[in-house]
Amino acid sequence: MINKTKLSAVALFLGPSLLIIALFFFMPVIAAFAMSFTDFDIYALGNLDYLRFVAFKNYSTLLSDPLFWTAIKNTFYFVMVGGPLSVAASLAAAVLLNSKFIRFKGVFRLIYFLPVVTTHVAVAIVWRYIYHPRFGLLNYLLGFIGLGPVDWLGDPNWSMPAIILLVVWKNFGYNMVIFIAGLQNIPEELYEAASIEGASAWQQFKHITIPQLAPTTLFISVITMIGYFQLFAEPYVMTQGGPLNSTLSIVLYMYQEGFRWWNIGYSTALAFMLTIIILIGTSIQFKLQKERNG
C-alpha cells in the first residue's frame, strides 16, 4: 500500500505554480480562442458593450487578406530555408568540433556558442550595420571574392536571405551542443568496422552518423521549426517588415494588428492560425521520420 501525500501538501506545493500557469497560460489561451470570434477592437477596449460575436468573420477576412498571405509566405520561406540551413550548420559545426584533430575544443565550443546567449535586439542592430550596402563588413568581405555589393536590407529579394543568415549565425551553436552529445553516443566500433571495410569518411557520415543521429535530428528539427515560426525581433528591429513587406512575419503582423491598431479579435484569429500551422508542421515532421524508419 503506497502512502498518498496529504492533499494539503499537494495543494501547497503545486498550487502556486499551477495557479500562475492557469491564470497566465491556459485561461488566456481559452480567452484568445473566444476573442477570435468577436470584433474586439479599440472601441470595445474602452467599453465592452461594443463587443459583438461575429462567428468566423475574422478567419474568413484573414483568408482574403493579402497581407496575411504575404506574412504566411515570408514565414514559410524563413522556416523552410532557414530551418534546414540552421540544422545543417549545427550538424557541420558539431562534426567539425568532434574531430579528433582538434585541441582546445572547449574554447571553440564557447566561441561558437556566444551568439546564442546574446540579446536578439543588440545582435540585430549590429548586423544592420554589417549589412550596410556601402560601409558594411559583409559587402567588403564579399568584394574580395568578386561578389556584390548587395543591398541586403534594402532589396526585397535579399532582405529575407539576410535575416536567415543572421539567424543561422545566432542559433547554430545551440543545436550544435545537442548534436555533439548525440555524436558522442555513437559507438566507436561502428566507425572502426566501417574503416576496416574501406568506407570513406563521407560514406561513414552518410551510413553511420546520419542514421544514428536520427532521433536527435528529429528533436532538433521540431524545436527549430516551432521557434522559427515565431520570428519577430529580427524583422522588427532590422526592417520593420519591409522593404515592400518582404520580411513581414506572422508574429510581426499579429503584433501590428493587435498592439498597434488594437484589432484584438483579428489578431487573436491570426494567433490561432499560427498555432494550427505549428501543429500541422510538427505532425508532418513526426510522420516523415516514421516513414523513413520504415
Binding site: A32, G258, T268, L274, T275
Partner: peptide
C-alpha cells in the same frame, strides 16, 4: 503521490506546443 499525477503532467507537457504569442492579448 497523488491521483492523476502522471496525466496532469502529460497534459502540461503537451500544451507546450501552443505558441506563447496566443496568450499575449488576453
Amino acid at each position: 503521490r497523488f491521483s492523476k499525477k502522471e496525466s496532469l503532467f502529460k497534459f502540461l507537457l503537451s500544451s507546450m506546443i501552443i505558441p506563447g504569442q496566443v496568450t499575449m492579448l488576453p
